[in-house]
């Protein structure tokens, strides 16, 4: 059941952003940025956590989920260490993803050759 929820919710989130791509002149970078910020906001006002509980990876894997991770991290850290937590919580919670992107990105550059599109 969890798999079906993940598929449907993840699919819907992606299909909705496809409308933004096709119907507006927004570039991918702008859409992604908006999604992360939106993820933070939705988590802050308490809407996103129930969606994560319902859909699991369907809600955490899209970039909205990255915003969710950041916001949840901040919330926990602020509860533990106050204002300092506002600065450390987000990046700490997202550290795995960010470091992995840097590391695997570098590895890709070192191991592969640029190639033509056809």
């Amino acid at each position: 059941m969890q798999y079906i929820n993940a598929f449907v919710v993840g699919g819907i989130i992606c299909a909705l952003s496809q409308i933004l791509i096709d119907k507006t002149k927004l570039t991918p970078a702008r859409i992604l940025t908006a999604y992360v910020v939106l993820g933070v906001i939705l988590t802050a006002i308490g809407i996103y956590k129930p969606l994560v509980d319902f859909a699991g990876a369907g809600a955490t894997v899209p970039l909205l989920g990255f915003g969710y991770t950041l916001a949840e991290g901040v919330k926990t850290a602020v509860a533990e260490s106050g204002l300092l937590g506002a600065f450390t919580g987000g990046a700490k919670a997202a550290a795995g993803g960010i470091s992995a992107a840097v590391f695997f990105g570098l590895l890709t550059a070192l191991l592969f050759r640029p190639a033509d599109k056809s």
């Binding site: 989130i13 992606c14 894997v61 899209p62 992107a101 990105g105």
Partner: peptide
């Protein structure tokens, strides 16, 4: 796939790895 590959965290990874690879020159 368009947004199907753009919006998941895999799209984030692709957007980091592709310029890293391409600007190797």
């Amino acid at each position: 796939a368009g947004a199907g590959t753009l919006v998941p965290i895999t799209g984030f990874s692709n957007s980091v790895a592709s310029p890293a690879l391409e600007f190797k020159s």
